[in-house]
């Protein structure tokens, strides 16, 4: 497990270094994600060995959002100011994005005849 966490940190660090060094707008962890994905394609055995650690970390993904979410207490002024507009934007855009995504997926699957899973 420690080795797997070390691998994740090495890829994050490499991504972070590249993102800062080359002043890219893609965040470091995403570059790390891409680099690890390419590495797993090259070394499929590594994916099997990392699976438990990855599953364990991702199973508790919700928890990791809590500290940032509590930040709402530091932005009460903004929400008092523009709370309704921001709420309308969040709810409206989330509903529209889900509809657009589902519609585009179903339509394209039908047109290309991409066969159904399971």
């Amino acid at each position: 497990m420690i080795r797997n966490i070390a691998i994740l940190l090495v890829f994050q660090l490499a991504g972070e270094t590249l993102a800062r060094g080359a002043a890219m707008s893609v965040p470091g962890p995403v570059i790390g994600l891409g680099a690890l994905f390419l590495t797993l394609l090259a070394v499929p055995g590594l994916a099997e060995r990392m699976r438990d650690t990855a599953d364990g970390l991702l199973a508790h993904l919700s928890l990791l959002f809590v500290p940032a979410g509590v930040g709402v207490t530091a932005h009460l002024a903004t929400f008092a100011d523009a709370g309704l507009a921001l709420a309308a934007a969040l709810v409206g855009s989330t509903v529209l994005a889900i509809l657009a995504g589902v519609g585009a997926f179903v339509l394209t699957a039908r047109l290309t005849g991409a066969r159904r899973d399971e």
Partner: peptide, 19 residues
């Protein structure tokens, strides 16, 4: 310390993506 784990968790997304 909890917030920090978002970074490694993002990198870890490569594993289910590969699976």
């Amino acid at each position: 310390f909890v917030h920090f784990m978002l970074g490694p968790a993002t990198v870890a997304l490569a594993v289910p993506l590969h699976a």
